[in-house]
Structure formats: structure tokens, C-alpha cells
Design a protein around this nucleic acid. Structure first.
Lengths: 239, 239
DNA sequence: GACTTTTCTGAGAATAACCTGATAAAAGGT
DNA sequence: ACCTTTTATCAGGTTATTCTCAGAAAAGTC
């Protein structure tokens, strides 16, 4: 039926540029699953081509490409009058000043390895800023909990809850798919980086952390364990 | 003559890839019975061939194949532009990171041994997400009972019923085939894993569990014993 | 009604799933 | 460099679930 997390993102075209086929594949498959239209290329030359012909709404661009750097690609396409925002994919140790220097305007960047939830969130944020397109809202309120994705703040019945980054990401993912059981594997795939080595036990830990912080402030527990299946965020209790 | 559970799934092509003939046979026979069109092969090379020529809607792919791994097969067919979703069949102890890494898009996986009901449910879920084909709905309501497959929740006349996973699976299977007698063996084959060692007495136990939980909430008993034959879920009472 | 067969159900042991506190390592801030 | 926060792993305790079995109950047969 609906894709997870972003049922409304329908006609948005994403150009994916990365020389590693596995990353291209990962992003292509996931973003398609989320409802985006994608096109993937493996080098800078093809990227310029595709940016011109494909008219993407947003470009995911690896900064380390075999033929030319992602920054050269950006300059080139900007000089051609293409204004689509760029989300740079960088290695952790990339000199950050270079990146921040180029991420003017609506651009942004994420460091590898990233989580899929992060990529989608950044795309959402960029599109929200630039096009004001009907993309995911910055504020998500389900049941007794309100989550503000711009400020990264969570309120439970009006009280600000202090969450760690991972706790926040997990809650955001759960709240994006209310009343739907999410398997632990599924959660791990979305919320943790794609190269995370551990097993799903960590999901249990973080659910525990979240419950400790949230359940003290809510009438109903918000995260339901579906034993043998997964976890579910419950918005409205049904008698 | 009618297929169980999914009379509408008619033209969907399933490619089955497993080196064990018994598993190939089990899946072929069952999925055909369910109304799918199937084609089965026993190694990676043939799988790539069949994926190209057969244009399957979905691929059931064992990850342990004699000539190449299921992941290599996936990469190969993806590079050929084939986007059909893959349902991986894996051993329980398979390194999970490998699997989870590849199952981010529409893909999914089940661990061996699986139950046939699980396979069908996963295929349904994948097709529902990707192709939006007119496949099984997430909510199934028959008579006084409503079952929500997204939330894995069951309501009897509006009251939430707490079921264990196996109880849920059994009820789901019964409700998928209302007003139709199901033999205990049939139920065992669908709902329990294919390597289940015990006998059909366990079906009796679980029917008993279900009745205890459901009949308190319904006017009519929903599960009827057809002595000497099997059980039947009845939607509208028929004398 | 008496007998046979089949089904139902309660009890219990073994197992699996889950929760949580402790802890160590890593990251981040001052 | 120090302290704090955060992340990740692990093991013990706890609860839910699965499965089997045996006796009770019900249905069918003569």
C-alpha cells in the first residue's frame, strides 16, 4: 500500500551520483521504495549530463568521484543554470571547511556511512526550505507526543523531553509509521547507519531508553511491544 | 478448484530459486495452488537467465546456492535493469548484516524453516508496497471479527483481543478462507514451519486457545468443528 | 444405552522473546 | 586534559509462548 514514512513524496526526481555500485543500489532501491523517482550514475561526467537532461529536483552527490570532484560537478551544473539543490555525500574525514564552503543556498551534506532515515530526512528538509513543496511537515504530532524536526525537539504533553540523537531518530521513525508494527530488522535498517555491524538487540535497548523518558509523561504507553513481531507506536488507543 | 486465501492473485509470476528440490517442489506446488504462476530453478546461473527472460513479478531467492550466492545473483540482475523485488530465503544463522544490507528497498527475507502462510503473506506485503497491485488488503473483516495486518491486531465486535503470534497466524489463515472447511493437516502445512515435527494435535490446542479468547466476545462461535474433516471459520451462520 | 472415535482443554516443562541494569568504549563539550 | 554524554554490548531476570500429554467431554455408531 503506502511506502513507509513518506507516502506523499510522489513525483520528486532524485539524481544519485556515486561511483560505488553498492551505494547507488542502496539509495536507488530505498528512495524508490519511499516513493521518489530516481536516476543513478557513477561519475561526474554522466552526472552533468543527467542533471541537464533529467531535470532532477535534488541531487545526491558523492564528493569523491573517479573523474572529477563533486565540487567541480556542482560548479559546472550551476554555470549551466541548473539550480537543483545538492546533498553532498562525504567521507567522515573529508576536510569540512571545503564542504561547508560549498553548501551555500539550499545545499547540505551527510557523512558516510549514513542511515537511510537521515538521507530521507535531509531531502525532506531541503525540499521544504527551497520549494516549499508539499513534503513532510517539520512538526509531527501523534497522540500525546509532538516532535519538531527543525528544532529536533520532542514534547510529551507539553513537557520538553531531552533525547539523545539516536533516541530521537528512533522515535521519529516510529512516529512516522504509527499504528503499524515495525520489525526490529526494519528499524535497524532505517535508523542505524548502513554499515552497522551489531544485531537487533540494540533496538531493544533504545526502546527501553525511550520508554523510560516518555512513559513518565504520557497517560498511555506510546511504544507497544508486539511480541514475536516487532514494535509499534500507538497514536490513539482503541477500545 | 479455487485457490486458498488468494483467489484474486492470478497473473503474478514468481521465480523460485533454491537448490534443494524438496523446497522447490514445496513452494511450486503451494504457490500454484494459491494462484500464482511459478517457475523454479536450482542455481544462480539459471536464476539470472530466468529473471531476464521470464520477467517475474517477484523472486524467491535462496541465499545459499551451489554456484553463486543469492547476493551475487541479486547484484547481477539489478545491473541488468531488472527491478523485481526479491524475497530472500536464508538460514537462521546467516550473517544478518549481509541480509539486512540488501533488504532495504522493497526486498525482504524469511528464515528457514518458514511456513507457507508466511511466504504468501510476505509476497502479498511486498506486492502491496511496490506495485500497488490489487492484492490482499491490510484489513480483513469477516463477520464479527476484524483483523488488521499492519498493526497485527484483532478486534472482535470492537474489543481488542490479545493473541500470541501463532494464534494470530492461525486466525488469519482461517479468516482468509471463510466458510470453507480446512483439514487439520492443511492448517498445519500453512501456519506452521515446514519442518514442524509434531502432529495435528497442536492445531486442536490452538483452536481451543482461539475459541477461549474469541467466543467470549462474539454472539456466534466463529470457529466450527467439522468432525472427521477439519475446522471452518464461519462468517454468516449457515445451517 | 454402551462402546468407539474424535475432539477439547487444563497442566506443566521447555523454550524463546523481551526488558533492564551494569559496564566499557567512543564521542563531544568546556 | 577532564568531564559528560552517548553508544553499544552483555548477562540475568522475567514473562510469554510453544508444544506435548493425558484425562474429560462430546459426537457418532451399533
Amino acid at each position: 500500500m503506502n511506502s513507509l514514512q513518506n507516502p506523499s513524496e510522489d513525483g520528486i526526481k532524485v539524481l544519485i551520483v556515486d561511483d560505488e555500485p553498492s551505494i547507488r543500489d542502496l539509495l536507488t532501491r530505498h528512495l524508490r521504495f519511499e516513493g521518489f523517482r530516481t536516476h543513478a550514475v557513477g561519475n561526474g561526467h554522466d552526472a552533468v549530463d543527467a542533471a541537464e537532461k533529467g531535470e532532477p529536483d535534488i541531487i545526491l552527490l558523492d564528493v569523491m568521484l573517479p573523474d572529477m570532484s563533486g565540487f567541480s560537478v556542482t560548479k559546472k551544473i550551476r554555470s549551466m543554470g541548473i539550480t537543483a539543490p545538492v546533498l553532498f555525500l562525504t567521507a567522515r574525514d573529508e576536510t569540512e571547511d571545503k564542504i561547508t564552503g560549498l553548501t551555500v543556498g539550499g545545499d547540505d551534506y551527510v557523512t558516510k556511512p549514513f542511515s537511510l532515515a537521515e538521507i530521507v530526512a535531509r531531502i525532506q528538509a531541503i525540499l521544504r526550505r527551497t520549494k516549499a513543496a508539499e513534503s513532510q511537515d517539520a512538526v509531527l504530532e501523534v497522540g500525546e507526543v509532538r516532535i519538531n524536526n527543525d528544532a529536533h525537539e520532542v514534547y510529551a504533553n507539553g513537557t520538553l523531553v531531552d533525547l539523545s540523537p539516536t533516541e530521537y531518530n528512533l522515535l521519529h521513525f516510529l512516529m512516522s509509521n504509527p499504528n503499524q508494527v515495525l520489525k526490529k530488522e526494519q528499524i535497524l535498517n532505517h535508523v542505524w547507519d548502513y554499515d552497522f555491524g551489531g544485531n537487533t538487540a540494540i533496538v531493544e535497548s533504545y526502546v527501553s531508553y525511550l520508554r523510560r523518558k516518555l512513559d513518565a509523561l504520557t497517560v498511555e504507553p506510546v511504544i507497544i511491544t508486539k511480541r514475536g513481531v516487532g514494535y509499534m507506536y500507538r497514536s490513539t488507543k482503541k477500545a
